[in-house]
């Protein structure tokens, strides 16, 4: 067996970056703040962990500036799990992203959960070998992030609330507009691009393929197996669970149940089975009690 001499080895390509997102589909990515959490997440069947210093619920309560995690903390989590490790950088903070890439994290979340570092620009994600996930509340935002090089889009939802209502709004908005674009004629696509403030070629590609160029996951407010299955039935392809697991009474039980619910999201018998006896869910917050809406961050 000889190797083809003309093909050169390439890393950090679009195919490789979007490819890892494909591998995470139908899975649960869990926020973890300690190596112990990370172990529980992996034991429970997480497909990846998001290493951060405080879960969004605590960031909300404690306030102050939320930044990239301490490299020691990220290294500590990388050391105990064999699944992919993600970490968050502030919106527009490309140096935090450079540091995370140097640490060898597998995905960077340019996240509205942290305090934005730039009020006009997101990170130029094409400049990196490591892939990026970005949040979006609507299709225009999703396409702007993709045009900057994001290889995975997630709904923003409203992190740290344990309230699924905002994630549902965002998923319905993104997927609803995708459906409408597939019905538009060629002339109407120009108007869609203008309305969405998104590049025309990306809008035209949606009209052709009926989906985003990258996977769409759900984040922000998932607290129960039923929430995860709701997101999946609405069209999300995987779920991120932040505060919902480790702010609940029995994190391991709940983590396992959410993993099963994400796989069997259309099977109500399995959903009923895994929803039993999970202890206390996180208390949660109503949207009328929210002072700072994290989802408004991002441009």
């Amino acid at each position: 067996m000889t190797q083809d001499p003309s093909g050169t080895k390439q890393t950090g390509t679009i195919a490789v970056k979007r490819g890892l997102a494909e591998m995470l589909k139908g899975g649960v990515i869990m926020d973890v703040v300690t190596p112990e959490h990370a172990k529980i997440a992996e034991d429970s069947g997480a497909v990846a962990v998001m290493a951060l210093e405080r879960v969004p619920a605590d960031i909300r309560v404690q306030g102050g500036v939320a930044r990239m995690s301490d490299p020691d903390m990220i290294e500590g989590i990388k050391a105990v799990v064999s699944i992919p490790v993600m970490a968050k950088a502030r919106i527009g903070h490309f140096v935090e992203a450079q540091i995370l890439q140097a640490l060898g994290v597998d995905y960077i979340d340019e996240s509205e959960v942290l305090t934005p570092a730039d009020e006009a620009h997101h990170i130029d994600k094409f400049a990196f070998t490591v892939p990026f996930v970005c949040g979006a509340t609507n299709l225009g935002e999703a396409l702007r992030r993709i045009s900057e090089g994001a290889c995975l889009i997630r709904s923003k939802g409203e992190a740290g609330t344990g309230n699924i209502v905002e994630a549902v709004r965002h998923l319905r908005s993104i997927i609803g507009d995708i459906r409408r674009i597939t019905q538009a004629d060629a002339a109407e696509l120009f108007d869609w691009a203008k309305k969405l403030q998104a590049p025309l070629p990306l809008v035209q590609e949606i009209a052709e393929t009926g989906w985003l160029q990258v996977p769409l996951f759900c984040a922000g407010g998932i607290a129960t197996p039923a929430d995860a299955a709701l997101a999946m039935q609405l069209g999300a392809e995987s779920v991120f669970v932040g505060s919902g697991i480790f702010k609940s009474g029995e994190p391991e039980k709940r983590a396992k149940a959410i993993v099963e619910a994400t796989t069997h999201f259309r099977d109500a018998d399995i959903l009923a089975k895994v929803s039993r006896g999970l202890g206390e869910p996180m208390t949660g917050i109503g949207m009328d009690q929210i002072v700072t809406k994290l989802a408004d961050r991002g441009w």
Binding site: T2, Q10, T11, G12, A15, G19, P84, G104, V130
Partner: peptide
């Protein structure tokens, strides 16, 4: 890890031209 993920052409037995592998 992911930063080492790559794509490259391979010669595959039974295929008459290279296969691009990710």
């Amino acid at each position: 890890r992911q930063v080492d993920s790559f794509e490259q052409d391979l010669t595959v037995a039974g295929l008459d031209s290279p296969f691009h592998a990710v």
